[in-house]
Design a binder for these strands. Structure first.
Length: 880
RNA sequence: GGUCUGUUGGCUCAGUUGGUAGAGCACAUCGUUCACAUCGAUGGGGUCACUGGUUCGAGUCCAGUACAGACCACCA
C-alpha cells in the first residue's frame, strides 16, 4: 500500500465519470465514422423515437445497438450509428392540442398556419429531450448526422416517393371503407387499430319479407341497420335458397332491400342471414362491391348520425343504438337479445372505439410492393435474428391489404396533390405547380391531408443519408448492416422499410433485422406510465450507473424474448462493475509503473492457465458479439473476470507482488496488466464508461483511450496452453477440497494446517510446482508431496480429487465418525460414476457410433475414477 | 380460428452443432490486516410441465397433451 491511490476511490462512482467521458468522446468526434473506401462499413439506423417521448425502459434497449456499434468500432470497421427523431404525426398533434386546450385554444381558432407554428415550437422545446437522455445511456451515435423526419431533405424524400409511386400507379385516391377515429377525427391504417374484448349484445331482428318469408338477422350494431342495403345469405344454405333475389323490408325506414347470396356468410353462425351495411363494415363493403349494392353512409365523421338515418339524424351513435332497439321492440320485430362478447377496434392513440366508414382517402397498392419484399427475406438478402420472426413478417406481408396513407391531421408531410377548382383536374407534383396543367388556372389548392407518420419512417434507412440526392454517405453506408428493434413494430416499420428500400433503392435496406423483446416489470407486466409501474432509466442510472443498467439489459436475456426488469438485476450489475473497479484498483496499486510485456517471462502453471482462459474468452466474446448473442458474451466475460481473474489470478499474484523476487514481481505485474487490458477492451461495448475510465488510469504503454485506439484483441496462440490449463484446474480442485474439509472440520480460519498430497499418476510435477498455491489459497503450511501412501499420516482428515489424495493431519480435530461419513459419501458417488462409465463403454452402440474423442474421454475419466475409488477404499480402511 | 413463445433449483433466467444440468438473487455455516462487505470461503437445493417417438445417448430433435403469454384474423 505504498502507491498513491487517491485517483481511485474504494467504490466505483459512476456519476463522476460518465458525463466526463461522454463529453470527451462526443467532442473528440469519435462517434463519427471515417469513410474508408477500402473498408466495409458497419451501419445502424436508430429507430427514431417520437418527439413526444421521454426516455423509458424501452429506449434503454437501445443499449443493444450501442453494444454492436461499439464492438464494430473497436474491431476497426468504419461504424455509423445514425440517430434521429420522428415527428409522430398523430401522437404529437394530440399532445399539442392538449397544450392548446389548456390555453382555451383549438385548431380551428389558430388555423393551419398558426397551429403548425405552435407545433414546431413544441418540437423545438421537447423534441431534443429524448436524444439528450440517450447520451446519458452512453449511446455512441453520430450526432452530426442526426435527422428529423420533417427535416427539409427528408420531406423532399417523402414527396419524391409519393410522386414516384403515384406515377407508377401504386398510389391512388379512392372512396373506400377505412378505419376512422371519431376522437382524433382522422382515418387510420388497419394496424393502427387495436382490438379489445367488450361484452355487448347480439340483437336478433326480423326483416319482413316482401315477396317471400321474413328473415331474422343478428347484429351487434343495430344503429347501422339504417344503412343496410341488402341482406346476405350463404348460396348453399337451403333455408334461404328460395329467398335469394327476392326482397325484404328494412324496418323503421321501410326501405326495400334485396337478399343476395355470398360465400362470405357463414350459414352456421346466428341465423345464417346477415344484414349488409356497406358503408360501415369492411366485409359488407366487399359484399356490396361484388353485388353492386348501394352504399349508404348514415353516420358523419364525428360519430353523429346524418340525414340518411332519417329520424335519428343528429343523434349520437350510442343513443341511436338504444332508440333503434327500443323502436324495434315496439314494432315487435326484435326477436331476441342475447349477451355477447366480441372484439371492438379502438384507436391505438386515444383508445376510442373506431368506426369503419367509407371515406375518400389515399392508398398505396401493396401487392406489387410486398412481393419483392417477401422475396428479399426468403432469399436471405435480409435475415431476421432470431429467424422465427421471419414467419411473422411473411404472415403479414402475404396477407397485406392496401395501405391507407392519408390522415386528416395537420402535423406531418402534406400530400403533394393539387386540385384545380376551375377545371377539377388533380395533379401530383414534387413542388407545387405554378398553374393547372390542364386549364392553366393559377388557383391551385393543395390536398388538406397529411401522410401517415410511418410513410416517412419507411424511408429512414436512405432518406437520412441524403436520398434522393446521390450523396457519398448514401453510396457508402447503404444498405445498412443491422436494424435493431422490438417485435412490436415489425409491421409498422420494418416491413415498410424493406419494401420501400427495395422499391426506391433497388436494394433491401439492411442485411439483418435483430429483433428484441419488450421490457416488462418484475411481475411480467408491460411497463406503462398509466399503470404506474414504469421505472425511469434516468433514476436507475443515477443510482447504479449507466454501465450497470446496460449490463442488466443485455445479460441474462435470450434473443427476441421479453425481459423482466428489476432493480435487483441492475444492482448485481453494479456490483460487478465495482468488482472490476477494485480489481483494476489493485492492479494499479501494484503496477509500480509501466509494466513490461509477458513475452520474456518465465510462466508457471497458474500464469499459463489465466492466459489460456484469456485467449478463450477473447474468442468467445468476439463470436458472441458477432452472432448478436450479447447475453452469452456478457456471461463469458463475467465468469472470466470474477471467477478466474479476481478469485484466482489476483490472489495468486500477491506473494509475487509483495515478495522480494524482482523477476517474479515483474512477471506478475506483466500478467495482470496484460489480462486487464484485454478485459477492458472486451467489456467496453457493454460497459463503456468504467472501462474507459480504468483504461485511462492504468499506466499502460502508448495508450490514448479505448475508443480512440480501437484495438480489438485477437487471440494469441503463443499464450494458449490447454495442457497446463487443465493441470491448473486439477490444482484448483484440490484447493477447493482442502477448504471444504477445513470448514467442515471447524479448523480456525487463521490456523495454517499442514497438508500432505499423494498425487494421482502423472500429477507429481504439477503438484510439486503448485505447492505455493496450496500454501497461499488453501492456507496450508509445509506442503508435502508424498510418493507413497505409507508416508501419509495416520491421524488425518482425508479427501480425494482427480489429481491427488489429500491428507490434513489435524490431530485432535479429526473426528472419526465424520471422516467415515464423508468418505462413505464420496465412495458411493464415485462407484456410481464408475458404474455409469462402465455401462456406457460396454454399450456396443456407443462404441460404434459415438465420436472417437468422446469415447477416449470416457475411458480416461473411468480410469481416473477407478484410481480415486482405490484411494477412497484405502482411506476408508484407515478410517475404520 | 391461425401462428409463435414460454414451462429448468425458493425467485429471475442461461444452456451455443443431442454426449452424465449452470448463473445471479435468496438461503445456511464460517470469515473484519494486506483491491473489493457493492466482499471472501464453503454448502444445501432441480424426476429440465406431461405422454409417446427418433437415437448408443434427449433439457436439447419429432408428434401430441396441459398450463401461461404474445401476435394475427374478426362470424354479423
Amino acid at each position: 500500500m505504498t502507491e498513491p491511490i487517491e485517483d481511485m476511490p474504494k467504490a466505483y462512482q459512476p456519476a463522476d465519470i460518465e458525463a466526463k467521458w461522454y463529453r470527451t468522446w462526443e467532442d473528440g468526434g469519435y462517434f463519427k465514422p471515417k469513410i474508408d473506401p477500402a473498408k466495409k462499413p458497419f451501419t445502424l439506423m436508430m429507430p427514431p423515437p417520437n418527439i413526444t417521448g421521454q426516455l423509458h425502459m424501452g429506449h434503454a434497449m437501445y443499449t443493444i445497438q450501442d453494444v454492436l456499434t461499439r464492438f464494430h468500432r473497436l474491431a476497426g470497421d468504419p461504424t455509423l450509428w445514425l440517430p434521429g427523431t420522428d415527428h409522430a404525426s398523430i401522437a404529437t398533434e394530440v399532445k399539442v392540442l392538449e397544450a392548446l386546450r389548456e390555453e382555451g385554444l383549438t385548431k380551428e381558432n389558430l388555423g393551419r398556419e398558426g397551429f403548425l407554428k405552435r407545433a414546431w415550437e413544441w418540437r423545438d422545446e421537447y423534441g431534443g429531450r429524448i436524444v439528450k437522455q440517450l447520451r446519458r445511456l452512453g449511446a455512441s451515435c453520430d450526432w452530426s448526422r442526426e435527422r428529423f423526419t420533417m427535416d427539409e431533405g427528408l420531406s423532399e424524400a417523402v414527396a419524391e416517393v409519393f410522386c414516384r409511386l403515384y406515377e407508377k400507379g401504386l398510389i391512388y385516391r379512392g372512396d373506400r371503407i377505412i378505419q376512422w377515429c371519431p376522437e382524433c377525427m382522422t382515418s387510420l391504417s388497419d394496424i393502427e387499430v387495436e382490438y379489445e374484448e367488450q361484452s355487448s349484445h347480439l340483437w336478433h331482428v326480423r326483416y319482413p319479407g316482401v315477396e317471400g318469408q321474413d328473415v331474422v338477422v343478428a347484429t351487434t350494431r343495430p344503429e347501422t341497420m339504417l344503412g343496410d342495403t341488402a341482406v346476405a345469405v350463404n348460396p348453399n344454405d337451403p333455408r334461404y335458397a328460395d329467398l335469394v333475389g327476392k326482397h325484404v323490408r328494412l324496418p323503421i325506414l321501410d326501405r326495400i332491400i334485396p337478399v343476395v347470396a355470398d360465400e362470405y356468410v357463414d350459414a352456421s353462425f346466428g341465423t345464417g342471414a346477415v344484414k349488409i351495411t356497406p358503408a360501415h363494415d369492411p366485409n359488407d363493403f366487399e359484399v356490396a362491391k361484388r353485388h353492386g349494392l348501394e352504399i349508404l353512409r348514415v353516420m358523419n365523421y364525428d360519430g353523429v348520425m346524418n340525414e340518411l338515418a332519417g329520424p335519428y339524424a343528429g343523434k349520437s351513435a350510442s343513443e341511436t343504438r338504444r332508440l333503434v332497439a327500443a323502436e324495434l321492440e315496439r314494432l315487435g320485430l326484435l326477436v331476441k337479445v342475447e349477451p355477447y362478447t366480441h372484439n371492438v377496434g379502438v384507436c391505438y392513440r386515444c383508445g376510442r372505439t373506431v368506426e369503419p366508414i367509407t371515406s375518400l382517402q389515399w392508398f398505396v397498392t401493396m401487392k406489387p410492393l410486398a412481393e419483392p419484399a417477401i422475396e428479399a427475406v426468403r432469399s436471405g438478402a435480409t435475415r431476421f435474428a432470431p429467424e422465427r420472426f421471419a414467419q411473422v413478417y411473411y404472415n403479414w406481408m402475404e396477407n397485406i391489404r392496401d395501405w391507407c396513407i392519408s390522415r386528416q391531421l395537420w402535423w406531418g408531410h402534406r400530400i403533394p396533390a393539387y386540385y384545380c377548382d376551375d377545371c377539377g383536374t388533380m395533379s401530383v407534383a414534387r413542388i407545387k405547380p405554378s398553374k393547372c396543367p390542364s386549364c392553366g388556372s393559377v388557383e391551385l389548392r393543395q390536398d388538406e391531408d397529411v401522410l401517415d407518420t410511418w410513410f416517412s419512417s419507411a424511408l429512414w434507412p436512405f432518406s437520412t443519408l441524403g436520398w434522393p440526392k446521390d450523396t457519398p454517405d448514401l453510396r457508402y453506408f447503404y444498405p445498412t448492416s443491422v436494424l435493431v428493434t422490438g417485435y412490436d413494430i415489425i409491421f409498422f416499420w420494418v416491413a415498410r422499410m424493406i419494401f420501400s428500400g427495395i422499391e426506391q433503392m433497388g436494394e433491401t435496406p439492411f442485411h439483418t433485422v435483430m429483433i428484441h423483446g419488450l421490457v416488462r416489470d418484475a411481475q411480467g407486466r408491460k411497463m406503462s406510465k398509466s399503470a404506474g409501474n414504469g421505472i425511469d432509466p434516468l433514476d436507475v442510472i443515477e443510482r447504479f450507473g449507466a454501465d450497470a443498467l446496460r449490463w442488466a439489459l443485455v445479460s441474462g436475456v435470450s434473443p427476441g424474448n421479453d425481459l423482466r426488469y428489476s432493480n435487483e438485476k441492475t444492482e448485481a450489475a453494479r456490483n460487478f462493475a465495482n468488482k472490476l473497479w477494485n480489481a483494476a484498483r489493485f492492479v494499479k496499486m501494484n503496477l509500480g509503473g509501466t509494466p513490461g510485456g509477458i513475452g520474456g517471462c518465465e510462466l508457471d502453471l497458474a500464469d499459463k492457465w489465466i492466459l489460456t482462459l484469456c485467449q478463450r474468452t477473447v474468442r468467445d466474446a468476439e463470436r458472441h458479439y458477432r452472432d448478436f448473442d450479447l447475453a452469452l458474451a456478457a456471461q463469458s466475460l463475467y465468469d472470466f473476470t470474477w471467477n478466474a481473474f479476481c478469485d484466482w489470478t489476483i490472489e495468486l499474484s500477491k506473494p509475487a507482488l509483495f515478495g522480494g523476487d524482482e523477476l517474479k514481481r515483474d512477471k506478475a505485474r506483466a500478467i495482470l496488466a496484460y489480462v486487464l487490458d484485454i478485459l477492458l477492451k472486451l467489456l467496453h461495448p457493454i460497459m463503456p464508461f468504467i472501462t474507459e475510465e480504468i483504461y485511462g488510469l492504468l499506466p499502460l504503454p502508448g495508450k490514448h483511450g479505448l475508443l480512440i485506439e480501437a484495438d480489438w484483441p485477437v487471440p494469441d496462440a503463443a499464450f494458449d496452453f490447454p495442457g497446463e490449463a487443465a493441470r491448473m484446474e486439477g490444482v484448483i480442485e484440490i484447493v477447493r477440497a482442502v477448504r471444504a474439509i477445513r470448514l467442515e472440520r471447524g479448523v480456525a480460519p487463521g490456523r495454517r494446517a499442514r497438508l500432505d498430497l499423494l498425487p494421482a499418476a502423472g500429477w507429481e510435477d504439477a503438484l510439486e510446482e503448485a505447492a505455493p498455491i496450496f500454501e497461499r489459497l488453501a492456507n496450508a503450511q509445509g506442503v508435502r508431496i508424498l510418493t507413497r501412501r505409507d508416508d501419509a499420516p495416520a491421524q488425518a482428515a482425508r479427501g480425494v480429487t482427480a489429481a491427488a489424495e489429500i491428507f490434513i493431519p489435524l490431530g485432535e480435530l479429526v473426528d472419526i465418525d465424520k471422516e467415515r461419513a464423508r468418505i462413505g459419501k464420496a465412495l458411493a458417488q464415485t462407484r456410481q460414476e464408475i458404474a455409469r462409465g462402465e455401462a456406457k463403454l460396454a454399450n456396443e452402440g456407443f462404441l460404434s457410433k459415438a465420436p472417437a474423442g468422446l469415447i477416449e474421454e470416457e475411458r480416461a475419466k473411468l480410469e481416473q475414477r477407478r484410481a480415486m475409488l482405490a484411494a477412497l477404499e484405502a482411506q476408508a480402511e484407515v478410517a475404520g
